[in-house]
Design a protein around this nucleic acid. Structure first.
Lengths: 160, 160
DNA sequence: TACAAAGTTGTATTGAGTCTAAATACGGTG
DNA sequence: CACCGTATTTAGACTCAATACAACTTTGTA
């Protein structure tokens, strides 16, 4: 199964909306996170990544090109710290976790056949109301919300 | 971290709405799944489980009491088959997958501190409309939808 | 600059989930 | 009911994403 095809393309990372180094340092400071070179690199890379969702290993490989001594543990540490702080999104999928930037409220579409993960933006109000109600009824202090649909993407439906 | 506390209590499995053996066999047949003793046991156990969500290992341990030779692989095989058929729900969480019965449209609340997983039923229409829109916009053939909130449950908020 | 707290590194280790090949059970057919 | 092809089960070996550890380095602050 080509579980990861579709995510690994175009690692070149020059999306127009990548954060500037200054913005990155500021945001980290706001959450009480130190601005180590490694953390800045991880966050910067993801913030300029587009809609893709990459695995920790893929990010490690990509980041090692500019930071050759970057360790696997550090990548995992920082992904956890950034996700806890709400600066990036962590997706728990059957084949392992994937990480991406945090866009507007959205729904994740995961294709079971090709493994592709895409986002669909949805109207704010509907989601917010739904989630707020669930949190209230369940007496829950929500920190992260995640909506995921799994099935077959358009390409896989038409092709097979 | 007591990651699994709260799920492992009361394995005794006598919820009032457990399916009868006949119902189980029928439902399996409808989806083209053979009614092996092991599969019937797995499905039967989960259908009578209440709102809990257990790991594959927890289910394996519980089921072994009545089926001592039941292998780990078989539990995994059947959980995958049942989840694919939509007869049970699979939840991909950071610490591993958990399985439960499929109730009405609902939101899963996952506590990061005690690991507890609970469901909140939500009005059908709101969710359905939201998911339908996402599927249409993303040109996606949906088979499973999952809404998960993570944060702190009421007990953990008041206790710490 | 100096110091405690936070972060990093590389390696060893864990453990959920998968794979394999041989044995067995299922369900339809004559 | 006896048969056969297919699906399923089993036990154990194996994979590899993710974590733990302990020594070392950097960051933020006074």
């Amino acid at each position: 199964m080509p579980a990861t095809s579709g995510q690994t393309t175009d690692m070149t990372n020059h999306a127009s909306d990548a954060l500037t180094p200054t913005e990155i340092v500021t945001r980290l400071g706001e959450r009480g996170l130190a601005a180590s070179a490694q953390r800045v690199a991880v966050y910067g890379f993801i913030s300029g990544m587009g809609e893709q969702h990459l695995t920790a290993e893929e990010l490690h490989r990509a980041l090692r090109e500019s930071l050759p001594t970057l360790s696997r543990a550090t990548v995992y540490n920082n992904l956890a710290a950034l996700a806890d702080a709400g600066l990036i999104e962590k997706l728990d999928l059957p084949e392992g976790a994937r990480f991406g930037r945090v866009p507007e409220p959205h729904v994740n579409l995961v294709c079971r056949e090709c493994g592709d993960v895409t986002d669909v933006l949805v109207g704010d109000e509907a989601v917010q109301r739904l989630l707020a109600r669930a949190a209230r009824v369940g007496q829950f202090d929500v920190s992260v919300a995640s909506i995921t649909l799994s099935g077959r993407c358009r390409d896989c439906v038409t092709h097979n």
